[in-house]
Design a protein around this nucleic acid. Structure first.
Lengths: 336, 336
DNA sequence: TAGCGTCCCGAAAAGCGTTTCGGTCACTTT
DNA sequence: AAAGTGACCGAAACGCTTTTCGGGACGCTA
């Protein structure tokens, strides 16, 4: 059994030392730029290391130093278009800080999550980031974990845990304020599944912004599903009253709404403005006219989660829930 | 500085042994189910281990055994909707085989890729999977790597390397054969960027299938971009001749085509059948009528890549390019 | 019952690859 | 000549598994 199919045994520091005619200790110092090595010895060691393409064994180093430079990323679903940007942001932040990411997908299954957790703990990750699949709070990973944990997208039910979540209330507020700023006054709202905190939070923020301007929403918030079909089919009801703007709970819903308005000959943005949430590129790309949308800054969330994890490692993260502020991306559908 | 902010030092096998009143060696054997331990000693050790929630240090074990149970996943873009399913499939296969995935995103940058490569090598991954961003071949990671590598989505330019790629030629063939089987004869083709092998390969397969039935494509293959806009704007030209089916290079293009056909009052599938590629759920979901599409089986590609990597580890992978066969998902747009 | 061989539980030690600490030795400075 | 300096080496340590080995219990024979 030739397990070493490609390129034999990994070359170790001892090999380098031996070939350079010095001790392992000296070789180590030479390679790590320590001072107590004469210039030509260093040069000789470095040459040999180069020639053997020596790569120090990070595992051995980790055992000494007590930390691995490795972080566990525990996600609930990899398909989700929300977890992806978060993952990117985190990977970005870690990459810069020379940490590597150990990725685990629990497929939304608590058993699998626990299994992955113990695997990661066994690999001695320095910390964990948990990416939820909904914005609703989730039970913490466990009590007395030996490493810090940052929850993102979905906060932990324990408010003392470190969580980084999107600010859906502010998102709703921003959407309405943008519409008001562009002269709209009669604003209706169609959203997704009412059991999602994202839907109700956005609606609450939108209503609050309206109230602050002495206005009221036109009609009820029409909750349904997060689909284009729902957006399309709800247009008839939305147009029963006189409206000049429609807030849509997601880009998909918005796209359905745009579609139905187009079919009915309602002009966007001239007759009605439309705004969505999530700023999901591939969905936006096909919209006619181009859709104004609230970007939840998911990538920033990932980055913040990573930063807070670093802070925790140094014992200087206070814990608690942090929200990431969304921003509006203005396009044609609100008459920019 | 209290680096150990949460829950002190990790508990080691020595702690367990000490508390159980046995030697480390005995504790090890008790925990790993080795034979030479008396039943009640084992029970005692196991109890203590449980109580301290002892987790064996995978790093220490890795140093002994010579392999880490860790695999590097080097992707070019995390946004890409193609790399995701591949990643899922691989994660799936590894999870089952108790390997963990170290994720690195090179953002399409060769420098970053090399940097990640050396990091992964330093962490002594057992193997590597490289996920490309286009189906065009890419230069291999490097010569004489100490671990096996499997390239996926984009094959390595070295045909001896192990690669797993989608079979775009067969995909084109399957699309046309499905249309022929449902009675279509006058088939046009609109596709994306001509510089993508995916576009030209699919067209080649489609033409070959037509030729085998003594037919010819209606009009040229209209290459453009992978966007809905291109699909929409090319419909006029496509309809200049009498067609009863349109093969679209991607689901996005197909959606644009459907949209434009709808606006012109052309009925789908009654007048014209439409078929796309990629079977991309969120894009498909909004189509009216529901879009028939060729699923490239990306998840399967990821799984196969993982399986071949395992095979390589055991020295029993022959290398070479392997294609994954796509399948047609029939929906309304082809009149199923 | 003493003496001998056998068996098995469990302790001790080696080894994985690296960093670091405490020496050693030769050479220079005062 | 004593002290100081610089360059290098040996060994310990990290946490675990594995191999080796010691010693106690047990069974058999005389």
């Amino acid at each position: 059994m030739s397990t070493d199919a490609p390129g034999r045994r990994q070359v170790t520091l001892r090999d380098v030392a031996q070939l350079a005619g010095v001790s392992v200790a000296t070789a180590s110092k030479a390679i790590n730029g320590k001072a107590e090595v004469s210039p030509d010895t260093r040069r000789r060691v470095l040459d040999v290391a180069e020639r053997l393409s020596f790569t120090p064994n990070a595992l051995a180093r980790a055992m000494l130093e007590g930390h691995t430079g490795t972080v566990g990323l525990l996600t609930h679903d990899l398909e989700g278009r929300f977890s992806l940007p978060i993952l990117m942001g985190a990977e970005d932040a870690f990459g810069a800080g020379r940490s590597s990411v150990l990725l685990c997908d629990s497929r939304g299954d608590a058993i699998r999550e626990q299994h992955h957790l113990s695997t990661l703990l066994g690999r001695r990750v320095d910390g964990l980031i948990v990416v939820g699949s909904q914005t609703d709070a989730r039970p913490p990973l466990g009590r007395d974990l030996p490493v810090p944990v940052v929850y993102t997208y979905a906060p932990s039910t324990d408010p003392a845990d470190a969580s980084v979540v999107p600010d859906n209330v502010t998102a709703g507020r921003i959407a309405v304020e943008h519409l008001l700023a562009t002269g709209r006054r009669r604003i209706a709202h169609v959203s997704g599944d009412i059991t999602y905190a994202a839907a109700t939070d956005r609606a609450a923020g939108a209503d609050a912004a309206l109230a602050e301007h002495g206005l009221e929403r036109v009609g009820p918030v029409r909750y349904g599903s997060w689909s284009e079909a729902w957006g399309r089919s709800s247009v008839a009801a939305l147009l029963e009253q006189d409206v000049d703007a429609i807030v849509c709970g997601s880009d998909q819903i918005a796209r359905g709404v745009l579609d139905a308005l187009h079919d009915r000959g309602v002009r966007v943005p001239d007759d009605v403005a439309v705004i969505g949430f999530d700023n999901w590129e591939p969905m936006i790309a096909g919209c006619r006219p181009a859709l104004t949308s609230i970007d939840m800054n998911f990538q920033m969330m990932g980055r913040r989660a990573a930063e807070r994890l670093f802070a925790s490692l140094e014992g200087r993260d206070p814990g608690g829930v942090e929200t990431v502020t969304p921003r509006v991306i203005v396009r044609e559908s609100t008459g920019g």
